[in-house]
Nucleic acid binder design. Structure first.
Lengths: 196, 196
DNA sequence: CGTCAACTTTACACCGTGTAAAGTATTCAA
DNA sequence: TTGAATACTTTACACGGTGTAAAGTTGACG
């Protein structure tokens, strides 16, 4: 845990992040990451127990680096449910773009590695609580649509904001980020907020 | 191409289908499929060039077995766009349940195998044409919502019906199939059809 | 009887992950 | 100044799954 050790660890995380972002098709191997970090392949295993572990730690590295907490703060401090909805969508959609490369690799691993699956699941459950908070505030303000139950609203909102939907709309449909955000915001309003 | 050869081929496809449906976590290997089909592992390679090829052929096998074409026919013959929308959603949502196990394996392979990726892409593009046909009929009937362009409506409808959204709502949110279908139908109406 | 097709058997190369262990270089402390 | 701890390198290897190669077996059919 010396500062030198910490430094190497950070270089590995930085390398993983960089390579995953640049990833064209063929997956990123441990050996690639080690090379990029200027370190031997074995050194990676001195800092991370396995590939899944490295990817999970990379997500935390990115969270910290991009100040995820700070980004979410405005939505938590919103005065109304409607405001909170908009601010939450903004923060989350912006975050997806940054986490996506690592998320993709982590999701791919989830099929074979249960730790990877559990780690991603936790993140998505935490994000779901954010969705719940939005719905609760809308309900408090009597602004929640009566079309669905609160629970269904949360599920739907959560699904709408999924990484897979971002992937589909931006990568498969070719929507640029601003168009994606605008539509998601408009849709969530239309589906969750009571008319009049 | 003798009938005996065809028979073996079908047994392999059947075995692949069965094992993928039963798959609990750990992936299905070629050796497993061969064993289930009562055939040597090498025999699989006499009928399919590689794993991706086998999975792709399995999707076609299922299509044929479940009469996908027949299932889609009612939607094609619908008198109005609104009818077509409902019938298309019904057929497709029903189909997802059946194709999902193979789709999951194929999507997992898509990360490493470009043939798998291309094959799934083709299927999804074909399905998108079905979405387009629905939107076109709604437009023809002056029933298409003016909130979005026709192109955007297609993209949105296509995304709404994605396998990933089915996965998220049923497996992650725990919605039963009937609830999933009812909500998707209601949502597509709300988003695509002009009010009044 | 022979031959052709379909399949089996055995063996092996390849890739990427993860483990093991011996060696090296730097730091720090008694 | 010695020597022990820390952080890393180097080399080697086991494992699991895919795909290839080639010789051997079986049965059908002219």
């Amino acid at each position: 845990m010396s500062s030198k050790s910490q430094n190497t660890r950070n270089q590995i995380l930085q390398a993983a992040w960089k390579l995953l972002e640049a990833d064209r098709g063929k997956g990123v191997r441990i050996a690639d990451i080690a090379k990029q970090a200027g370190v031997s392949r074995q050194a990676v295993y001195l800092h991370f127990t396995k590939r899944a572990d490295l990817l999970i730690e990379t997500t935390h590295f990115i969270d910290h680096h991009k100040d995820l907490e700070g980004r979410l703060r405005p939505s938590r401090n919103a005065a109304t449910g409607i405001e909170r909805l908009a601010l939450f969508v903004d923060a989350w959609c912006h975050y997806i773009v940054e986490i996506y490369p690592v998320a993709k690799a982590l999701l791919a691993m989830s099929a074979t590695d249960s730790d990877a699956a559990a780690a991603w699941d936790n993140r998505m459950k935490a994000m779901k609580h954010g969705c719940e908070a939005v719905i609760n505030d809308l309900k408090r303000d009597k602004n929640l649509s009566s079309q669905m139950s609160a629970k269904e609203s949360v599920d739907l909102f959560w699904t709408l904001l999924s990484v897979r939907n971002w992937e589909h709309l931006t990568l498969d449909c070719g929507w640029i980020q601003s168009k994606y955000v605008a539509h998601i915001k408009q849709l969530s309003r239309q589906l969750l907020i009571a008319k009049i």
